[in-house]
């Protein structure tokens, strides 16, 4: 495989991994390993959550690829498949066509349907509402608020408003939903409802990946990721606080 083909294959690989929520360190490490497997030991990789730069040098001639990752959707199954592909590539060293066919397959790998995800939000929010001390009514209300979160997050991720405002919108809708259900007497303990639904918004992936990037010694990516998590959390807190403050008068 020549350096052109290799750079094309690994940049597509890395961009896919970044866009579905792989850690920065995993992306850089996999790319370096793949290149080393083809005998390219002089490789430069630089990744941050939305940008990937790769330079492969052959006979003193560098080939550089830069990828911008526009939309990010967490898909841990895809991370696992890409991880397995990187092991496969290092072991078998297939040609560029084979790699691109396998990447196509991974792109087509199954995802849960729209309604399963809505049901998952319902399940998650209601179970956490009960875990934090709510009753059956609070659990049902939290489930409904969780569904509202899902519908809102689909809309807000299209608005391109940034993590803070996207999560603020979700939190506003979620707590408004909880407050209205409390106001009509369905689930009076709205604090439990909101805590349950809030757990679906917790930035678990960014927090865990940020912490792992720090451990790997990649402080730049770690800081970037943790600030994203912090902004998400602040957005949730601000949205919920404002809404509860405004609508508290409705609940007697």
């Amino acid at each position: 495989m020549n350096s052109q083909e290799l750079a094309g294959a690994v940049s597509r690989f890395g961009a896919m991994m970044l866009s579905c929520g792989g850690e920065i360190n995993r992306v850089e490490d996999s790319i370096a390993r793949i290149c080393a497997a083809y005998g390219y030991n002089h490789v430069g990789v630089f990744a941050i959550p939305r940008t990937l730069i790769i330079t492969v040098t052959e006979n003193g001639v560098p080939v550089t690829r830069l990828e911008n990752i526009k939309d990010k959707t967490v898909n841990l199954d895809r991370v696992a498949r890409l991880n397995a592909l990187s092991r496969f590539i290092c072991r078998v060293r297939p040609d560029a066509d084979c790699i691109s066919r396998r990447l196509d397959n991974i792109e087509k790998s199954p995802v849960y349907g729209r309604y399963s995800i809505i049901a998952a939000y319902f399940l998650s929010a209601s179970a956490y509402a009960m875990f934090f001390g709510g009753g059956i009514r609070e659990a049902a209300a939290a489930g409904l608020a969780g569904i509202a979160v899902r519908l809102m997050s689909r809309f807000s991720s299209k608005t391109d408003a940034g993590v803070f405002f996207e999560n603020l919108l979700c939190a506003v809708v979620m707590s408004a939903c909880a407050m209205l259900l409390a106001a009509c007497g369905f689930a009076p303990r709205y604090d439990k409802t909101i805590i349950g639904a809030l757990m679906t918004l917790v930035p678990g992936v960014t927090l865990t990946n940020g912490a792992r990037d720090f451990i790997a010694g990649d402080f730049f990516a770690g800081t970037y990721t943790l600030i994203e998590a912090l902004l998400t959390a602040l957005g949730i807190a601000a949205g919920a606080a404002v809404t509860v403050g405004l609508l508290r008068g409705l609940v007697v």
């Binding site: 967490v74 841990l76 049901a119 998952a120 399940l123 956490y128 679906t200």
Partner: peptide, 13 residues
């Protein structure tokens, strides 16, 4: 139960 829901959101299969 909550984790099953959470996992489905992240497409763990």
């Amino acid at each position: 139960a909550a984790a099953i829901g959470y996992g489905i959101c992240f497409n763990i299969r």
